[in-house]
């Protein structure tokens, strides 16, 4: 990282920390407000039964530790996350690591398929005019279709044929992740300018040489930028793909089970696990991208 970028990173550290702190504070206040009604209700019932009414401050502290809060306080979510990741055995069905791994494996498989499919389509689009004209508009149109809506059908139908488990979820991830790859890769493969292509011609480079030595390397920054988008989309696909299977396993299943049984803390912790997973995946792809670009001598 050069000096300027490092500086920029440091300069935004304080503002980002401030914003996150503000979000946490707002969250606590919101949790207190939203959970207060239930506590007041409890207190009124207690009065009807003849016991003493709870004081205001008592009720306020109680809002932070309800079993099924409307909005769990941040530390409750943190505790649940800690409990279900570190303190539970990884193989346990109540461990978030177990569920996270199931989602992650579908995500990665789908991401792999999506990347390969996207790259192949992009090469076809760049090298074949008919494909450019006919496939490209449909690739774009395919994304205006709310594909997640088809997710349950794909899962159920593939289940009926006997294909179950990882593959159906991975297919949904594939569909969501191939699009950014196609768009980015087409842009990247077309990014070498006329001068560079002319240079290839003066070297008497064949078509495949021009592809491997000029177009493909030139497309790498575009590819990694779109891979960051794609891996996030792929995770969303895997999570939604887990919804219709009847909440068996995976982060999506935890969400659904939580919503069935009103376990808000479980929902929020699954949500945060998904967020952490997404952030980590995007960061890893970004890091690999930076390493590759440095290895290729592209970062100044």
């Amino acid at each position: 990282m050069d000096a300027k970028a490092k500086n920029g990173w440091r300069a935004s550290l304080l503002p980002v920390a401030t914003v996150i702190a503000a979000i946490v504070v707002i969250w606590y206040i919101a949790a207190a407000c939203l959970n207060f009604a239930w506590e007041r209700d409890q207190s009124e019932r207690a009065v009807q039964k003849g016991s003493e009414a709870a004081t205001f401050s008592q009720m306020l502290t109680n809002t932070m530790s309800q079993k099924r809060p409307v909005l769990p306080a941040p530390h409750q979510v943190g505790q649940e996350l800690w409990k279900t990741t570190v303190e539970k055995k990884v193989t346990s069905k109540r461990s978030l690591v177990y569920h996270g791994w199931i989602t992650l494996s579908a995500t990665l498989l789908g991401f792999l398929f999506g990347t390969i499919l996207g790259m192949l389509l992009a090469v076809g689009i760049v090298y074949n005019k008919a494909m450019d004209m006919s496939v490209m508009p449909w690739v774009i149109a395919s994304q205006t279709i709310p594909i997640l809506a088809i997710a349950p059908m794909i899962i159920v139908v593939l289940n009926a044929v006997g294909v179950s488990g990882l593959l159906p979820k991975a297919l949904i991830s594939t569909y969501l992740s191939f699009f950014p790859i196609v768009v980015g890769m087409v842009k990247g493969l077309r990014s070498p300018d006329a001068m560079q292509q002319d240079l290839m011609r003066t070297y008497n480079a064949s078509g495949s040489q021009a592809f491997w030595k000029l177009r493909l390397p030139a497309s790498m920054p575009y590819l990694f930028t779109s891979m960051k988008v794609a891996v996030a989309a792929s995770l969303v696909g895997a999570i939604v793909g887990e919804l219709p299977t009847g909440a068996v396993a995976g982060l999506g299943a935890r969400l659904l089970a939580g919503s069935y049984y009103g376990q808000t803390i479980q929902i929020w912790s699954a949500l945060f696990a998904a967020a952490i997973l997404a952030g980590t995946l995007v960061a890893i792809v970004g890091l690999v991208g930076r390493l590759v670009e440095r290895r290729m001598g592209m970062t100044r």
Binding site: L148, I239, A270, A274
Partner: peptide
């Protein structure tokens, strides 16, 4: 970049 769809429940 997060799976915001998860807040649906």
């Amino acid at each position: 970049a997060l799976p915001i769809i998860g807040i649906a429940p």
